[in-house]
């Protein structure tokens, strides 16, 4: 219980930090007034009303948007892993059903990821409302929901990945591996400028981070479609929430299921995986 409480407190702190940074660094409305859709789009890569088009400064800006969540992922990446680090023998002799243990811990990580995203978004919106005039509307609320769902799933995916990789590689190497993967996916955003070439178009669509750029979405809901400025790029046909949700969920499921197999088949040979791994 004590551990859950400290996990929640840290998550809250990271969420507040993330939201504050987002509000101060990425929400820049013209004339100090912004509509909620524009605010949400800026939180996921847009610059003002302009969608991300792939220059180095935009890629680095996108990386900066993920920097606070990486801090959360470094912390939450030890939530499951720590049971393998101290007295793992004692922990797992008391949890004979490892699959059940994994499900419980994965739910804990999911809860923390959702809480982090919620707090981050809330703080970003509230701080922006304090600093500027934010005009809420229904399309904005829908985009906010899209943002919450997609970013929660992605944060959860990366966090679980770090947890399970740590069991084999140690916390540092696991974090490095996950960060490199995420960095490559962010870098692939730059390929949107070459999306008239089929190979690069495919790579852009395969990268999970592309599906987190709400400014690239098209929507069947007319009000939402109208709220998202079009990306004028030769050969670029955009994403949609259902497709993006499917893609991100597939990656999530792959990581969760692989992690489950790894945990189930891991031999507890040492008492402290951190010293013996990596």
């Amino acid at each position: 219980m004590h551990r859950l409480r400290s996990d929640l407190l840290y998550t809250l702190a990271f969420g507040i930090l993330s939201g504050a940074l987002s509000a101060f660094l990425f929400v820049r409305p013209m004339y100090d007034v912004t509509y909620l859709p524009e605010l949400v789009l800026q939180l996921s890569g847009s610059r003002g009303v302009f969608a991300l088009v792939g220059g180095i400064s935009e890629i680095m800006n996108m990386y900066m948007r993920f920097a606070p969540s990486i801090l959360f992922e470094i912390y939450a990446g030890t939530v499951m892993y720590r049971s393998f680090c101290t007295a793992s023998v004692y922990v797992f002799t008391r949890n004979p059903n490892r699959a059940k243990w994994y499900r419980r811990e994965a739910c804990r990580v999911l809860l923390l990821s959702a809480l982090f995203t919620t707090v981050s978004l809330l703080v970003a919106v509230l701080l922006s409302a304090v600093r500027h005039e934010v005009i809420p509307n229904v399309p904005g609320a829908i985009l906010l929901l899209y943002h919450f769902i997609l970013y929660s799933i992605w944060t959860f995916t990366v966090t679980i990945l770090i947890n399970v990789l740590s069991i084999r590689l140690g916390s540092y190497n696991a974090t490095l591996a996950a960060a490199v993967l995420q960095a490559v996916c962010i870098a692939l955003l730059g390929l949107v400028r070459l999306s008239d070439q089929p190979v690069f178009a495919v790579l852009t669509r395969v990268s999970p981070i592309s599906h987190l750029v709400l400014g690239w979405f098209r929507s069947a809901i007319p009000a939402v479609e109208e709220a998202i400025p079009p990306v004028t790029r030769e050969g670029f046909w955009g994403f949609s929430f259902p497709t993006s949700l499917l893609v991100v969920s597939v990656y999530c499921l792959a990581v969760v299921l692989s992690g489950r197999q790894l945990v189930l088949h891991h031999d507890i040979l040492s008492g402290n995986a951190e010293l013996d791994g990596g």
Partner: peptide, 30 residues
């Protein structure tokens, strides 16, 4: 190079401690 350059900039802070600082930390831990 824009894409690879951005990957390098992103992973650089993570690579820095790997060669010598992490072995130092492990030496203290063990």
């Amino acid at each position: 190079n824009i894409e690879m350059f951005s990957v390098l900039l992103q992973v650089y802070p993570l690579l820095l401690p790997l060669p010598a600082v992490i072995p130092y930390a492990k030496e203290r831990q063990t």
